[in-house]
Every structure is written in C-alpha cells, then in structure tokens.
C-alpha cells in the first residue's frame, strides 16, 4: 500500500475554491449584561467576588472558575490599574502592516484577580513599561452602545 502515482506538472495541481459567510450572535449573559450596562450607563467597572477563594473577577463571572461556587456578590472597582504586560501590534488581522502600531495591554485592576485587555491610548510605545499606572478612558456617554468598545482604552495617569 502506498501512493504509486503523483502529479507531475503545476498545471495538473488543481484546486476548487469555496468560501462560506459566517455570522453569529453571542449572548452576553447575566454577568455580561450587568457589566456592560454599568459601563454604558454609569461609566463604572463591576466585578464579582468569590468569598471562599478571595478573588474578584473582572470581567465578572457568575461562577468561580477555581471552586465552582455561584457568585452573587458584586463590587465596583476603580477605573484604573497597572500594566501587567503589553505588546506593540504592527500587523492587522490578515497580517498586513498597520499604518500606526497599536499598543495592547493587560491591565490589572486594584483589588481584582483579573483586569481588562485593551488598547493603551495616548501613550508612545517607547514610554510604556510593565508596572505603569493607567486609567480607563470611556467613550462619551451618548456614544456608548453596551459593548467593551464603550471603553476607548487606557491612558497613563
């Protein structure tokens, strides 16, 4: 058993092209609804607390990923934090060079186990460092739509 014949010329190496449009909706859920609504209506960041593990989840979750308990304690967190790590993105989704590099960071919020992954705005790449203090920049309230993009990003404090 094996393949005893192969294509010999490029002209014979045919392909059939196809594509399929994919569209989905993603239900944000109980915790997501409350989190995104608080950003939209009040410009505040909410988290849920697991008292047993002493962890505060941001973005909030209805259950603790460590101990599996259902969470119902909500807290408001300061809309600021510390850059835990960052990168400078020079490529678009399809690999093309971006006109302007974008800084993306994971920002840990004080008192939270988690934080937010978002853009760092108004910062020069060469000035960014791990440990830098930053604050959330919300869009003007009338432009907010109830998504994570109601946050423009973080800026250095």
């Amino acid at each position: 058993m094996s393949l005893i014949e192969r294509l010999g010329t490029f002209g014979d190496a045919k392909v059939w092209y196809d594509n399929i449009p994919l569209e989905s909706e993603y239900t944000v859920g109980i915790a997501g609804e409350r989190f995104l609504r608080a950003i939209k209506d009040r410009g505040v960041i909410l988290g849920t607390v697991c008292p047993a593990c002493d962890l505060t989840y941001v973005p909030p979750s209805m259950y603790c990923e460590r101990c599996f308990t259902q969470l119902d304690e909500w807290v408001e967190l300061p809309a600021k934090g510390t850059v835990y790590t960052f990168t400078i993105v020079t490529r678009s989704l399809d690999g093309q060079a971006l006109d302007e590099p974008e800084i993306l960071a994971f920002v840990k919020l004080p008192g939270a186990h988690g934080g937010l992954v978002h853009r760092l705005t108004t910062a020069k790449p060469e000035d960014v460092e791990i440990g830098m203090e930053v604050e959330v920049v919300f869009k003007p309230q009338k432009e907010r739509e109830g998504s994570i993009l109601d946050i423009k990003g973080f800026k250095p404090t």
Partner: peptide, 26 residues
C-alpha cells in the same frame, strides 16, 4: 481570530499573535 473570546476580547480586532507578544513580554 475566531478562536478569541467573542464579547470582551474579539471586538478589539487585534491579530491574535498579540497574546504571544504580551506573554513573552511578561
């Protein structure tokens, strides 16, 4: 990119290699 978490992460529209950049940095 379609493997990214859809509600909090994917809307940023970033090339997912950014996660490796951030992890390497840390």
């Amino acid at each position: 990119a379609y493997a990214m978490e859809p509600i909090y992460n994917r809307p940023l529209g970033a090339n997912p290699h950014f996660i490796a950049g951030m992890e390497m940095n840390r």
